[in-house]
Design a binder for these strands. Structure first.
Length: 103
DNA sequence: AAACTGACTGTTA
DNA sequence: GTAACAGCCAGTT
């Protein structure tokens, strides 16, 4: 990670490093990117990812241990997590937090 | 260049 | 445990 990388580039790199079957929070990603107060911006970056991205964007959840997306998007993310063996309630709450990754 | 927008979070009650 | 509030700051207009 270099300082001349854009914030967006650093976020991409960090998210690419989240292991299969693990999740992390917007705040943790922001901290790893060197901007501890930029959690909200992490969401902003993810929102604007291309639809065909290979980045595991769905492994990023909020600090309450739940999916921040709503409606159909919530369902898409939930399915992606379930597919990796992560238990998620229908409302989007991750059942266990032993899946947490911190880099 | 300035205003607006939030896939957020820490604090407070 | 929850809810309201106020900062937060990169990206977009």
């Amino acid at each position: 990670m270099d300082n001349h990388d854009t914030f967006q580039q650093r976020i991409w790199q960090i998210i690419a490093a989240i292991p299969y079957g693990k999740v992390t929070t917007y705040g943790d990603v922001a901290r790893l990117a060197g901007s501890p107060r930029a959690a909200r911006q992490v969401g902003g970056v993810l929102k604007r990812l291309p639809a065909d991205t290979t980045l595991p964007w769905y492994r990023v959840i909020n600090r309450m241990g739940e999916i921040s997306l709503t409606g159909n998007d919530l369902e898409r993310q939930r399915r992606a997590l379930l597919n990796e063996g992560i238990e998620v309630s229908p409302a989007g709450k991750i059942v266990l937090n032993s899946y947490r990754w911190q880099g």
